[in-house]
């Protein structure tokens, strides 16, 4: 492995910015976040970066590394070509605050617009429910989400078409799916999904699924079943009739 490498890090704020090269020693086993920290400690103390767990569990350190949306703490240098500068940029779909830190507050606002969990009444006198493992597993897949927002970052509806005001993005389609398929939930979000959250904007490009660090099958397991529910409700002629009556 090389003993040093160049990191081309985007630095700036909402008014603009540019790439700056930092050459720093690298050791075996290092991840991109380590290199960024080393630069920060030794060359640029005011370099802005978010992180927490350093183990792929919190979803704080999302960035674009050589153009790929990734968690910096789980991207090993040994998997990158260190002959070339490693390019590190903030996520593009969100406004920059400073350097590698973006304003992701929109995501937290979107979540509030999705109707909350509403369980059926308890199954047992102790106030608890009975559920089979097989039934919870389907939803457990969605609940692995660490809210890194990398899927939001790559979704063209948000990234290129800026439909933040109309479309909730793959993360929140996964969230809605987790609620809709929850064995205990009694709320109905199908109409919202069509009219308010505009699930129809998604044309199943699968870009979101490909970048999910938790390997959640976003499109096949979450979005498509939700689209089917929408179709069943709004486009099935029999149900249409039923709705009118």
């Amino acid at each position: 492995m090389a003993t040093q490498a160049t990191f081309r890090i985007w630095r700036g704020d909402p008014s603009g910015g540019k790439f700056q090269d930092f050459v720093t020693p690298v050791d075996e086993g290092m991840v991109v976040l380590d290199a960024v920290h080393r630069v920060q400690a030794e060359q640029a103390p005011d370099l802005a970066v978010r992180w927490n767990c350093k183990a792929g569990k919190c979803g704080s350190c999302s960035a674009e590394i050589n153009g790929m949306p990734k968690l910096m703490c789980m991207t090993r240098l040994s998997n990158l070509n260190l002959e070339m500068p490693v390019i590190i940029e903030p996520m593009h779909a969100f406004p920059v605050i400073r350097d590698l830190v973006t304003d992701v507050s929109w995501n937290f606002e979107v979540k509030k617009t999705i109707r909350k969990f509403k369980p059926r009444s308890p199954d047992a006198p102790d106030g608890a429910w009975r559920m089979q493992q097989a039934d919870v597993e389907r939803v457990q897949e969605f609940r692995k989400c660490i809210e890194c927002f990398l899927c939001q970052d790559v979704c063209h509806v948000l990234r290129d078409h800026h439909k933040q005001d109309e479309f909730i993005g793959p993360r929140y389609l996964v969230y809605a799916a987790a609620l809709e398929m929850h064995p205990l939930d009694t709320e109905d979000r199908v109409s919202d999904l069509k009219k308010k959250h505009n699930i129809g904007y998604c044309n199943i490009t699968t870009c979101c699924r490909q970048v999910c660090p938790e390997s959640i099958t976003i499109t096949e397991n979450a979005i498509i079943p939700l689209k089917e529910r929408v179709v069943d409700r709004f486009f099935d002629p029999l149900k249409q009739l039923f709705n009118i009556i």
Partner: peptide
């Protein structure tokens, strides 16, 4: 812990469907 379940947490289950 039961309260968490009422708020949507999904713990792993026993064979008879409890936590």
């Amino acid at each position: 812990v039961r309260e968490l379940e009422a708020w949507g947490a999904l713990f792993d289950r026993t064979k008879d469907g409890r936590i």
